[in-house]
């Protein structure tokens, strides 16, 4: 294809996207308007199921099936990373040298590790009450563990991070979400239907039916997935080196 032709294809595609976008935006409700058809229905549905955080109700109750899809995307993405960033035959593992860290930074990281872990678990547990939930809390938990890399070195992190266990945890979190969905199918009405558990008292930790359980499943999946993801990146950046003979030319 000549350069001129490519520009025409680009222009046609860009024009089509622009037309579709404008057509879509024209039908949107006005910004900051008083009428919210979807919002009103979502809020009344969330209140009926005693879920104080409407967003959690939308994510883990009204549209829990969508969230299963999103969770699976993360699962698949991490699986792909694990396959792509594995140690290949022409690479070798070099034990990382210990790093020097200033004592105040080391102390800060060691004090903050449990604080950040607790914050993450708090965010997961309060997903049905306040902003947050499984995804956000899971990321905080996973980041908390890596304070050990920042405050000490990679060898210290590797001691508390058997990657195999976290891979199992990743799969278990994903499976728990599915099991809860099937439980809704068997014990209630439909896949992932929130009809299984009592809705509890509004604005307390035990409210929202299956929402907190689904949050916990997602939290576990996300935390383990991020740990596995970072483990692959850290291995590549810190430990794995190409063999000297094959460093030239051969890109794997």
């Amino acid at each position: 294809m000549s350069r001129r032709m490519r520009m025409w294809v680009l222009a046609t595609g860009g024009l089509a996207v622009a037309v579709l976008l404008v057509a879509g935006y024209a039908r949107l409700p006005h910004f900051g308007g008083a009428v919210h058809p979807y919002g009103e229905r979502a809020v009344s549905a969330a209140l009926a199921r005693h879920t104080a955080n409407v967003i959690s109700s939308v994510n883990f109750d009204l549209r829990a099936f969508d969230t299963l899809g999103e969770e699976t995307i993360l699962f698949g993405a991490v699986l792909g990373t694990v396959v792509l960033l594995r140690q290949t035959r022409d690479e070798r593992e070099v034990p990382p040298a210990p790093a020097e860290v200033a004592p105040p930074v080391r102390r800060y990281a060691l004090i903050m590790l449990p604080v950040a872990l607790l914050t993450g678990l708090y965010v997961v547990a309060h997903g049905q009450l306040s902003p947050g939930g499984g995804f956000q809390g899971g990321v905080v938990v996973a980041t908390a563990l890596h304070l050990l890399y920042i405050g000490a070195d990679y060898r210290a992190l590797e001691k508390i991070r058997p990657v195999g266990t976290y891979e199992v945890g990743d799969a278990a979190g994903e499976a728990a979400y599915l099991v809860l969905g099937v439980a809704g199918l068997l014990g209630g009405s439909a896949f992932l239907a929130n009809t299984l558990l009592p809705y509890g008292t509004f604005n307390t930790l035990a409210s929202g039916g299956t929402v907190p359980l689904l949050n916990a499943a997602v939290g576990m999946e996300v935390a383990c997935a991020v740990v596995v993801l970072l483990a692959r990146f850290l291995d590549q950046a810190v430990e794995i080196e190409e063999d000297n003979g094959s460093a030239m030319g051969k890109e794997s």
């Binding site: 959690s56 902003p131 995804f135 990321v139 996973a142 970072l230 990146f233």
Partner: peptide, 27 residues
């Protein structure tokens, strides 16, 4: 008024994304 999305952004953007990018740069 979308604090849930804001929290996701903060959780991912403040430490995780920089770590992934800088590790890739180092490699």
């Amino acid at each position: 008024q979308a604090p849930d999305v804001g929290l996701s952004q903060l959780a991912v953007g403040s430490a995780l994304t920089p770590l992934l990018i800088l590790l890739s740069v180092r490699k």
